[in-house]
Amino acid sequence: MHPLRKQRLYVVLSILLGTVIAALLVFKGLSENINLFYSPSDLQKAQINTQIRVGGMVRKDSIIRVENSLRVSFVITDFEEDLVVNYDGILPDLFSEEAGIVAKGKINEEGIFVANEVLAKHDENYMPPEVAKALKDKK
């Protein structure tokens, strides 16, 4: 084969190989690591015991702490449906009543959301885009 041809062949082959490997990784990565987002009222569509994200406003007077432990329970709402969230850990600074939050975790058989991560975003005026959208859709 002509050396220039051969060289091109190698170049094309290595690009192809790289792309195929990357495509496989992307496919594998995406199929395992996508977290669907739900608001409390479309939660019945969610599968139980699967990692999802939920978002809404923390309902007033709904935060219950278990004395002497990190366990806490609160209710988030999109003004249509409510959802009880249980969490065992330190809550972020901006977590408070009537703040918009996003929680990552799983819904259990009793319909309670067991969170492993609670996010309240940085600015007091800030609403996570999903929460803002979910609240807007319901109004």
Partner: peptide, 24 residues
């Protein structure tokens, strides 16, 4: 990808977790 997904699945919202990037 979340934007693409939202466009295809009519407003369904997702996020891509850190493990995706770690695998990659």
């Amino acid at each position: 990808f979340p934007l693409i997904y939202e466009a295809i699945y009519d407003g369904e919202q997702i996020s891509v977790g850190a493990p995706y990037y770690e695998v990659l």
